[in-house]
Design a protein around this nucleic acid. Sequence first.
DNA 1: TTGGGGATGTAT
DNA 2: TACATCCCCAAC
Length: 233
Amino acid sequence: MIQREPRGQKKQINDIIIEGIFFDGGGKGMKKLSRDFYDRDTLEVSKDLLGKYLIHHTDGERLVAKIVEVEAYIGDIDKACHAYNNRVTNRTKVLYGSPGIAYVYLIYGMYYCFNVVTEKNGKAAAVLVRAIEPMEGIEKMVGNRYGKKLEEISKKQIINLTDGPGKLCIAMGITKDHNEMDLCGEKLYIAEAEEKIKHPIVTTTRINIDYAEEAIDFPWRYYIKDNPYVSKK
DNA sequence: TTGGGGATGTAT
DNA sequence: TACATCCCCAAC
């Protein structure tokens, strides 16, 4: 039995705020991110994903949501990563594959988490999308999450719609069927709009990785400052 | 408003 | 057995 420090006794790392740029839709055309975008340093990809648009074509509809919170997982140095210490299993093998592929896994027996694979073949790394802001197809997302119509739910339920990794997968209709899907394809992808907007990014430690020893303190969680859809408010 | 615990299935 | 979660309900 390994004894671990209770969470509350870990020394607190102050949140760091940096300046980021993202592309704001505002009705303008969207451009799908190419594989080159994902074929880069994972922390850079993580920050750059903030403000981009996750798009899923499903049931004849287009669901669009802005990415507002992410976490990086980098296998070779990160005890929180499923592929730490070169662990290759049926589940983790996608992490070693091409950048720009989806990694979707079941968590706590009930929920899915959506990740994008980064870096070159052979290096296991990914970015977990933890929260998104609905932009288009909200009625469908509300139906997926609550089985109700938009006018039947409260304002609080709108904010709760996609403010966590499990919630956003339910809302967007992402399941294990999307595991290993190519995000450079036509069904599920990430895009940027034409108009650039500067925005502050908050950098913190990651959520719910208490078992990860020294990696607990890695500041690899990023979110858009003051965005109401960020998790753990 | 906060904290504890149950749901739930699969990877290891 | 633990888990990159969510939701409900009791207790404050």
